[in-house]
Design a protein around this nucleic acid. Structure first.
Length: 843
DNA sequence: AGCACGCCGACT
DNA sequence: GTCGGCGTGCTC
């Protein structure tokens, strides 16, 4: 049409072919973006947020994300061409790119590191990408002129199904083999083998449904019955279909159809009859991409009934959302926060927005997932670190396509490509595991979620029974809304908490290893009543260290400044920091005595001792060592839930998200190790941990009991836990924080200097601290100091803490100053090989 | 992060 | 005499 109209006009001048450039984010820890030239023919294909393939350096071929497209030719270098475009739609959304920039900025890392952490590796690809012959290319017939190097490649591809780039380089004995690959791609003789299409393949099921013809018009079904009257087998199939998909009740059910295998696997029906019905045009066959996640089809559509308190909390939250973007739901364990979340999520989904529901890793259990699937069915995406890469890529694509309207996920789910977010829920908001330690980006998913919500105009609901001091402060100062739920759901009552003075019990000779007589009796009582027990010991392994009775020798890690923990199940000594392990020696390597004794105790010893004391009890242990295997976690939970296990012993893992009706006793074996922690958050943490563990005791009318073993029962923290007095904890903590200038009154940045030489590490830290002081002032820079664990993986550590008061400090400028000082430190010849890591808002 | 270029020890 | 150690510096 336009050609006809243009008939009389001169052809458009060729100059109109604009030369475009793309700034790309490489998945590498590089501070800058790199500019590539877009080949004319790709002008329309290259999109911001899509992946492209570029050559970076002499050899490497990488996929990267387009951050910007422009016409500014770089002045001081020749831009290389983009080699290929991988996506016809962006896989990173605009608000995501903004978020990623914020993360890089705030957490002092590069945007490449953010991208690298964000993309599931099925969506990344590197030099390992391969080439194969173009499916339509026939080297015998196609008469394409090929250079001799190109012939070599084609020949090799006829012998091998695919070649990596490196293999091509070796084949040609050339460094710059890439132009040949490029040329062959242009000649459509080969294609680049995307790992995306290679590694990420959606799961598909074959389904059938009635053709539209039979459902659209009234009476067509009757006619169909008449038609098939003489074909009993086919009629059977039709009846069977209508029984499973009651189209006559609701014609819309037909579009979802039914899995072909359901009918085909029925012994009374024959597959060939189904096929003839398809041929006849009665049924049509179609593929449906299905989730790799088990979907419970018994989606309960009936609205779940909220209790009066839940209903009230929900209304308050919605009311506060009218004026505030962030609300904290402060609800005791067992108050039924989850139902409130589910209700709010429903509202948000009905309004057409996307929802992200964040949980700490140990709280994202099968229990909660099953519950959500029951309500949200296949709208729900699940993002868990234990999932395979394909599964993660599937969630990513599903969020992009709109298949998953909501996602429940762990920390890294904040990277998903939401573009229309309306609600974010951060459950267990206080959890330190929302903060990533290593490697960069050292982000906090709670803060990141808040920023993401802000960028997309979404509301954020934080939930906790024991809010972080920072969060509560924001509520108290009215920046955020606060909603309380202080009653347990149903008739459930708060557990009774009882302290056991270990010191006294020892004097009375009432301790059996690490169990007080009271605790053992209490456990026996529950077992007799067929009730269940959870025991908490915040240390895995058998013993944190062993020692020789004769010479006091203690085995230490060769690479880290820690003693080795004894793990009995594999008779190993193991370092919990670097993974180093050795066989447990039979006798002391230092003096030869056979008197090696384990000191202290971990979950494994608790398990051992308990089994000796109560041989009839079914005891299970849940910690990092017993849950490494893929389904072992699930199994332990299932066994406990079914009542097969009576006593569950575990670390932090047992404190979260596990709700078992029948648990009437929770024992904390050594409370003191939790309180005495050299950190300004120690009390907050201890309180949170005690309250969370206690929350496992008692449900549905039966008040539970919590027994806490301690050597120091007068610790004020116990009184607060006992009376469930969060407010008094908060008042106390916030005053301390104010007095010493800790968060929320200041932001902390922990700078760690690492070097294999102890002296160099120390000196570099001293110089760095001085430079920082020069830049920021004395009051803001603390240290350097040698941390308690002063060596990890053969690197000696020194720490500097920078405190940036909330008021009167330009955070951005301060961080830039810090980065600059670090960069300059790298240049000093005395400190070659030094590593400096900045951790913003360390946990 | 890789990978190349570059300058000093034990090997055919 | 060369292969190879990993130190430093760059990658659009």
């Amino acid at each position: 049409m336009s050609e006809l109209l243009n008939f009389n006009y001169p052809p458009e001048p060729a100059v109109d072919r604009v030369t475009l450039f793309a700034d790309v984010i490489l998945p590498l820890p590089l501070p800058k973006l790199y500019t590539y030239r877009i080949p004319f023919e790709m002008n329309d294909e290259v999109l911001v947020g899509a992946r492209v393939i570029v050559q970076f350096g002499a050899k490497r071929v990488l996929s990267c994300i387009v951050a910007d497209i422009h016409e500014n030719a770089p002045a001081d270098y020749q831009a290389k061409y983009i080699l290929d475009v991988l996506d016809d739609k962006p896989i990173v959304t605009a608000p995501q790119l903004k978020l990623f920039r914020w993360i890089a900025d705030y957490y002092m890392c590069t945007i490449g590191e953010v991208i690298n952490a964000a993309l599931p590796s099925a969506l990344k690809l590197s030099s390992e990408s391969r080439i194969q012959l173009h499916p339509h290319f026939n080297p015998e017939e196609d008469d394409i002129p090929l250079a001799s190097q190109e012939v070599k490649i084609i020949y090799a591809l006829q012998q091998n199904p695919a070649l990596t780039f490196t293999e091509v380089g070796n084949l040609l004995q050339l460094k710059s083999y890439h132009k040949y690959i490029k040329s062959l791609i242009q000649k459509e003789a080969i294609i680049i083998f995307e790992q995306v299409s290679d590694r990420f393949s959606p799961k598909v099921v074959k389904k059938i449904r009635l053709t539209e013809h039979f459902v659209q018009e009234e009476g067509m079904l009757e006619e169909l019955f008449n038609q098939l009257a003489t074909k009993p087998k086919q009629l059977d199939i039709l009846l069977n279909y209508l029984q499973k998909v009651p189209v006559h009740q609701n014609i819309h059910l037909n579009s979802a159809g039914i899995e072909k295998s359901v009918l085909a696997n029925n012994p009374h029906l024959s597959k060939s009859s189904i096929d003839s019905l398809i041929k006849k045009g009665v049924f049509e066959q179609f593929d449906q991409i299905i989730s790799r996640f088990p979907v419970d089809n018994t989606v309960s559509l009936q609205p779940m009934k909220l209790s009066e308190h839940q209903e009230q909390a929900k209304d308050e939250i919605l009311g506060l959302f009218k004026e505030k973007d962030t609300v904290l739901l402060h609800g005791v364990t067992g108050s039924g926060k989850t139902e409130v979340y589910i209700d709010l999520i429903k509202h948000a989904l009905e309004a057409g927005g996307q929802v992200l529901y964040l949980l700490p890793e140990i709280a994202l259990t099968a229990q909660i997932v099953t519950r959500l699937i029951k309500v949200f069915g296949d709208k729900l995406g699940i993002y868990h670190s234990k999932f395979s890469d394909n599964e993660r890529a599937e969630v990513w694509q599903g969020v992009l396509s709109g298949r998953f309207q909501m996602v429940v996920g762990v920390r890294s789910a904040v990277f998903l490509p939401f573009h229309n977010l309306s609600l974010v829920i951060v459950d267990e908001e206080h959890e330190p595991s929302y903060k990533q330690y290593e490697p960069a980006p050292r982000y906090n998913a709670r803060e990141t979620a808040l920023m993401m919500a802000h960028l997309q105009g979404a509301k954020t609901l934080l939930g906790s029974a024991t809010p972080s001091i920072e969060t509560y402060y924001n509520c108290k100062t009215d920046r955020w809304g606060l909603v309380n739920m202080h009653k347990r759901f149903g008739e459930a009552q708060m557990p009774t908490i009882e302290l056991i003075n270990v010191r006294e019990e020892q004097q009375r000779k009432n301790m059996h290893n690490h169990f007080s007589g009271k605790l053992v009796t209490a456990i026996e009582e529950r077992l007799a009543r067929n009730e269940q027990v959870i025991l908490f010991q915040n240390r895995r392994g058998y013993a944190p260290f062993i020692s020789c009775d004769e010479c006091s020798w203690i085995p230490k890690c060769q690479h880290c400044a820690v003693s080795l923990s004894y793990h009995k199940y594999n008779n190993e000594l193991r370092c919990h920091y670097c993974g180093y392990h050795e066989r447990m020696p039979h006798d002391c390597p230092a003096c030869g005595a056979t008197t090696l004794r384990s000191m202290g105790f971990g979950t494994e010893k608790v398990e051992d001792d308990l089994k000796l004391m109560l041989p009839n009890a079914e005891v299970q242990r849940m910690d990092l060592d017993t849950t490494k295997k893929k389904n072992s976690y699930q199994q332990i939970i299932a066994d406990f839930e079914s009542g097969k296990t009576n006593v569950l012993i575990g670390t932090q893992m047992v404190t979260k998200g596990l709700d078992f009706e029948n648990v009437s006793l929770v024992g904390i074996l050594n409370a003191d190790s939790i309180i005495h922690f050299p950190d300004f958050r120690a009390h907050e943490r201890a309180y949170q941990l005690f309250v969370q563990v206690s929350g496992r005791a008692g449900r549905k009318g039966k008040p539970g009991t919590v027994l806490i073993q301690t050597r120091d029962p007068l610790q004020p923290i116990f009184r607060k836990v006992h009376s469930n007095d969060y407010t008094s904890l908060y008042e106390h903590e916030i005053e301390e924080r104010m007095r010493f200038g800790y968060p929320p009154f200041a932001r902390m940045i922990r700078i760690t200097v690492k070097h294999p030489d102890e002296k160099i590490s120390e000196n570099a830290a001293i110089v760095l601290a001085k430079d920082l002081t020069d830049q920021l002032g004395t009051q803001l820079v603390l240290g350097p100091e040698v941390p308690y664990i002063f060596k990890i993986r053969n690197l000696f550590l020194n720490e500097i803490h920078v405190k940036l008061p909330r008021e009167n400090v330009n955070l951005r400028a301060a961080k830039q100053a810090i980065s600059k000082v670090i960069q300059q430190l790298y240049l000093l010849p005395d400190f070659k090989g030094i590593r400096v890591v900045a951790d913003v808002d360390p946990a």
